[in-house]
């Protein structure tokens, strides 16, 4: 009978050692993670210089409508008389009516600044992130319209579903302290 009881205590001793080791290792690891810089983690963002406006952001995001929205760098805007973000380049009848608009949800609105300039802005709840306006602005305008992941909507999936299919690998992890990659003048 002495042998089994001795064996049991040895097994118990090893288990005790593993438990203590685990406790020390876990608290050490968590402590070092907590005290390190950038422990705040990362969020996903679109690099506008890599983005090829493939229109997948509108359909692949797990949030519906997409957490990707068009944003407008006003400082870059040329205030074109016919905004290429709003109007198709081949218009029927050269009118400014709805069939000549790029945006499928009419999310680009404008406010009057002074004749003949209008300030274009994105009505975010309407925007689906399809990048059709970005295509127009990139090709013919100043490229002041571009896509960004809006962090008030993004649920920050561990693996971004859009990043999985992005043909340009334009969706990257950025520090949560600097969550946007904005276009600037110059």
């Amino acid at each position: 009978m002495a042998e089994p009881s001795g064996k049991k205590s040895r097994r118990e001793f090893i288990a005790e050692g593993i438990r203590t080791g685990g406790l020390v290792a876990v608290s050490g690891a968590l402590g070092s993670l907590a005290t390190r810089a950038h422990s705040g983690g990362t969020v996903w963002q679109i690099d506008p210089h890599k983005c090829v406006q493939c229109e997948k952001c509108a359909t692949e995001c797990v949030v519906s409508p997409s957490a990707v929205k068009c944003v407008h760098a006003y400082a870059m805007c040329g205030y074109c008389r016919l905004c290429f973000g709003v109007f198709k380049d081949k218009r029927t009848g050269n009118t400014t009516t709805a069939e000549n608009h790029r945006c499928p949800t009419d999310a680009i609105k404008r406010t009057f600044v002074e004749d003949p300039y209008y300030e274009m802005y994105i009505d975010e709840p309407l925007c689906i992130g399809c990048a059709l306006c970005v295509q127009g602005c990139e090709r013919f305008g100043n490229g002041s319209l571009f896509l960004q992941i809006r962090h008030d909507r993004c649920v920050n999936c561990n693996q971004c579903a859009i990043a999985n299919v992005c043909p340009a690998q334009a969706i990257v992890r950025v520090p949560a302290s600097q969550p946007y990659l904005l276009k600037t003048v110059g």
Partner: peptide, 24 residues
Amino acid sequence: QEKQPPPEFSAGYQPPTITIPGPR
């Protein structure tokens, strides 16, 4: 990047900046 130079506005128009709502 700037094919169409930004116009000179007569009145004191300041273009707005991009809003950047933060993550959780």
